[in-house]
Amino acid sequence: MLRFLGQRLLLMIPTVVVPLVLVFLLLRLAPGDPAAQILGDQASPSEIAALRSEMGLDLPLPVQFVLWAKNIVTLKLGTSFFFKQPVIDLLPQYALVTLQIALAALFLAVALGSILGVVAAINKDGVLDRGLVGVAVLGISLPEFWLALLLIFLFAVTLRWFPVSGYVPPADGLLASAATIALPALALGIRQSALITRMMRSSMLDVLGEPYIVTARAQGLPEAMVIGRYAVRTAAIPVVTVAGLSASYLLSGAVSIELIFSLPGLGKLLIDAVARRDYPVVEGAVLLIALMLAALNLIIDVVYALLDPRVRMG
């Protein structure tokens, strides 16, 4: 198991490095001079040049790259041009919002999707199954932004159960905080939960036809145990792949849904920073997102290994 984890950690490196290098290059090669932009229209060329050398922008690209890489590795992410605050202090509060939404949506998608998928499979071709499959098809065909607007209209504007927008950090009351992320999480999670429902259903149907399920039944084990312990265990394996894709999708989805609900998350931070050419923030945010995605992949791999001894033993 340790060797397995080691291998996976090595495999993580490129998934983090590649996006970072891309961002470095894109920012450097894109037209426009950040120093000029920061100082505004009135700045004199000498002021701009001074700032450029202060920022290291006058150095040759390879040298910039080496300095940049060194900073990234030592986690010296620099100071935001805009906020005048170290990026490393800035990121956590924004990341928390995004994570909260993504995790809530993921929990919703996996829990609801798995349960509904199992229920549908057990009632194959019954009324419940048909109903669930129908709802799942509907859920998959609804785009998130549309769903988000529907939810806002129904629950926030008409029923007034949840706030339309805005964010309350968990420190100021867990319930109030949960209320602010409920709608975005719902808007994001429903489509994924529909996908997982379908996946779980078909995976369960496959597994329920397997001889080892007949063996378990023939041993006299009660149906609840056959389903819960024997069938779900193997049916979940392909679902983990889908859940993994869902999770990375949800992370990026959270970034965009924040804009609709105007929540102060990583997405909003990133978009604003790009508009302001606030390099350190852009790089810091990308680094963080890449790390979160990589961590996610690692978690998926570990879940796989826990579910399937064949993976664990190589």
Partner: peptide, 28 residues
Amino acid sequence: PRERRRVGGRGIGFIFQEPMTSLHPTLS
């Protein structure tokens, strides 16, 4: 069905044709 499975499970042992697929792959 419930009772039947219990009675059958205790009273009848079953050995399947396919040793490859008749045991659970991820339970020890």
